[in-house]
């Protein structure tokens, strides 16, 4: 779709003539309305059907993940309890029924070959871990990236040089190799430092590595934005009125940065979901009996001929989630500012 043009400089309020076409026919109160950036962006977003479908899907997904235990109870699904009755030892432990999927009223999405665990239940609870990792990583990356990026951009000088080189240093590390290499020793460290055991320490580890190796990307974008913002009048006036650096960064600069940051976040989140899935293929991830979507996908690949639904269902779902976040992120960017940070 075409993106409406909008100046990249962000002002507190912008006056814009409301297009007459959006007003009721023959409205006598045809007027000039003052609308905030948020209202304008939201109005654009609402007109974007793809974005709305994606948003509804995302909200549904988050609700389902949040209320997974409740939902599982309601639907009488247990992700742990194997149903061995639908497996056939004579076929090597494959489920019975249509396409060897084990799909039935009891198991609407079938069962896992071999173990007989309910796929709907695994997806439901797997979504919690996958989304927990992705959402937490995104939030932490945003906090760190914005704070450090704004500080380096505004303060400049030696601070910028030191932090900037540190970011470069972090960026040159190959993330995937580090993840695999550090997985065991760091997980054990986290266990001994925090007292977390088993999966909790592994989840903390994955989040830690995602955040540690990703925040510099956002920090660089933010720094670039701040470099141009800090020369602007409202910042200069704040300086001339004697505001301190902290106040200027947090009260003047950061509120004007959220457009590129929101865009970055909506695109980073699905990339974390996909990265978690990729890690599962490499054997880094949660330990049984917990699963993530990535783990389910990597386990199911070999069954693509014998139990196609086992691969198809989690695969499609993962594809849809990543697609929804990406489409929504694109639309938000278009709505907010077509020129800000193509990330």
């Amino acid at each position: 779709m075409s993106s409406p043009h909008f100046p990249s400089e962000v002002e507190e309020r912008i006056l814009e003539e409301v297009p007459s076409s959006t007003l009721p026919e023959g409205d006598p109160d045809k007027q000039i309305a003052g609308r905030s950036l948020t209202q304008l962006a939201w109005a654009r977003l609402k007109r974007d059907h793809v974005a709305m479908v994606a948003l509804v899907f995302i909200i549904l997904l988050l609700l389902v993940a949040m209320f997974a235990p409740l939902l599982a109870n309601l639907l009488n699904i247990d992700q742990y309890q194997p149903d061995r009755a639908v497996l056939d030892d004579a076929t090597g432990g494959l489920p019975t029924g249509w396409l060897s999927s084990g799909i039935s009223w009891d198991h609407p999405l079938g069962v896992e070959p071999g173990s007989g665990r309910d796929i709907a239940g695994m997806l439901l609870f797997g979504a919690r871990i996958s989304l927990l990792i992705a959402v937490t990583s995104t939030v932490l990356v945003v906090i760190l990236g914005v704070a450090i990026g704004a500080a380096t951009g505004y303060l400049g000088g030696r601070f910028d040089a030191v932090v900037g080189r540190t970011m470069d240093f972090i960026l040159i590390f190959p993330l995937l190799l580090m993840l695999i290499a550090l997985s065991d020793p760091l997980t054990q460290r986290i266990e001994s430092w925090t007292g977390l055991a088993g999966n909790n320490s592994r989840i903390v580890y994955i989040i830690f590595v995602f955040v540690f190796f990703t925040w510099p990307y956002l920090a660089r974008i933010v720094r670039g934005q701040v470099l141009s913002l800090r020369e602007r009048e409202f910042v200069e006036s704040a300086v001339s009125m004697g505001s301190g650096s902290r106040r200027i960064i947090f009260k003047e600069l950061i509120p004007n940065l959220w457009a590129p940051v929101i865009v970055y976040a909506t695109l980073a989140l699905p990339s974390f979901i996909a990265a978690e899935a990729a890690l599962a293929f490499l054997g880094v991830g949660v330990v049984p009996p917990e699963v993530t979507w990535g783990k389910m996908l990597s386990d199911s690949v070999v069954y693509y001929t014998s139990v196609p639904t086992y691969l198809f269902i989690p695969g499609t779902l993962l594809f849809l989630v990543v697609l929804a976040f990406n489409l929504f992120g694109d639309s938000v960017r278009d709505a907010l500012d077509p020129r800000a940070g193509r990330v």
Partner: peptide, 21 residues
């Protein structure tokens, strides 16, 4: 991994907590 999940589950029936490693 699947076998480990099944072991954890079957031990749970006896109230034995097993951590898969």
């Amino acid at each position: 991994d699947k076998i480990a999940a099944s072991l954890v589950e079957s031990m749970k029936r006896c109230d034995i907590d097993v951590e898969a490693n």
